[in-house]
């Protein structure tokens, strides 16, 4: 306890110092000892990452221009009378196959039930949901005595494997055909006199029902990070505003949010990456049926159910390309911070 207390004191004093001496170069001169030493420290990390991530990624990009088992160019998979993009044939399939291009209206409709449309729904709803719940809960739990317990409850779903989560939500979404509903949600609805709903096969609510499970799992993560950020907002500033007669709502929006905005950016970025990579939930709950497919699950389907390595890898490359803008935002934020340090 004493040790961590001391740490935080050091941290605070250091932070203040930095603010006063802002035009300093990022690294003190004295610490530039040799050009070789830094690479020693980087070596283990660079080695494992090159081997486990970079090399397979290059391999993947190569395979995405090949046919289903990687033995010939993708151009050979074109069929007569069908559109063909040559060696980019897998990309044509990945980008256009789900869309109905007969009319703009049909295209619009088919886009929103495709894996791309669903992934966008996921990003918007899930990121908004987790960050909102996480932030609201962090702010409110800060003011109650049972804070630790409350946060543990919100964090708990993170400790549950996807298999477990699948079973858990079966007992929430279950749709029974007899009078007895063993699903909690439908039981509540029928006891209020309503008709039970088949949550996971009714389009379009089914996608949102799976997103809710995602929010349930990941809100704890956002809450934890945001709660930590909130604790760093100096009490003096908030108290000063309150003394000036600002309403709690104003204090929150005008003082707290601006201060923790960098953290919110971090959380949003991390969540977007998570959502784009997330396929387990869809796989466990609907298997991508009933127009709930997402890009990551489609990649899995092409790779391991249809055994089309070329198409699967093409979807993967598209997935990676889709994430790059968010990574760019993240890095930009870093550069700005480093510059002002």
């Amino acid at each position: 306890m004493a040790a961590s207390q001391a740490n935080s004191n050091i941290g605070m004093s250091g932070k203040r110092k930095r603010k006063q001496a802002s035009p300093n170069p990022p690294v003190p001169q004295i610490m530039k000892q040799g050009a070789f030493v830094p690479w020693l420290y980087l070596l283990p990390a660079l080695a494992v990452m090159t081997f486990f991530i970079v090399y397979p990624m290059i391999n993947t990009i190569g395979l995405s221009f090949m046919n289903s088992d990687g033995t010939a160019s993708a151009a050979t998979t074109c069929r007569d009378g069908q559109p063909c993009w040559g060696v980019f044939e897998n990309y044509r399939y990945a980008l256009t196959d789900e869309f109905n291009t007969s009319s703009p209206a049909a295209l619009w409709k088919s886009f929103w039930s495709s894996s791309y449309g669903n992934t966008i729904k996921w990003i918007v709803v899930m990121v908004f949901g987790t960050v909102t719940v996480g932030l609201a809960f962090a702010v409110l739990a800060d003011r109650v005595k049972y804070e630790a317990l409350a946060k543990a409850v919100l964090f708990m779903p993170m400790a549950i494997s996807f298999v477990g989560a699948g079973v858990i939500w079966k007992f929430v979404y279950d749709y029974g055909t007899s009078q007895t509903q063993i699903g909690l949600l439908n039981s509540i609805i029928t006891s209020l006199g309503g008709r039970p709903v088949a949550w996971l096969s009714t389009i379009p609510i089914n996608t949102f029902m799976i997103v809710i499970v995602g929010i349930w799992i990941w809100s704890g993560f956002c809450m934890t990070i945001l709660a930590a950020a909130l604790k760093s907002v100096p009490d003096e500033i908030i108290e000063a505003a309150r003394v000036d007669g600002a309403a709690e709502w104003t204090v929150f929006w005008k003082i707290i949010v601006p201060i923790i905005l960098p953290t919110i950016t971090v959380v949003v970025t991390t969540m977007v990456i998570n959502v784009l990579k997330l396929f387990d939930l869809v796989y466990v709950m609907t298997g991508g049926n009933f127009k709930t497919d997402v890009i990551a699950n489609r990649m899995y389907t092409e790779m391991y159910k249809n055994f089309n390595v070329g198409r699967g890898t093409a979807v993967a490359v598209i997935l990676v390309v889709a994430i790059i803008p968010f990574i760019y935002l993240n890095i930009k934020r870093f550069l700005e911070q480093e510059a002002s340090r």
């Binding site: 690294v27 530039k32 690479w39 990452m49 991530i53 990456i273 790779m303 993967a316 790059i324 890095i331």
Partner: peptide
């Protein structure tokens, strides 16, 4: 190394490493 040591290409390399978060596991 990234925080307190100085070497060429520090930011670029760091950005690259952060970017690698996106690679889907199934591909590897």
């Amino acid at each position: 190394a990234f925080a307190w040591l100085d070497f060429k290409g520090r930011f670029l390399l760091f950005a690259l490493l952060v970017g690698l978060q996106v690679v889907p596991l199934q591909m590897t």
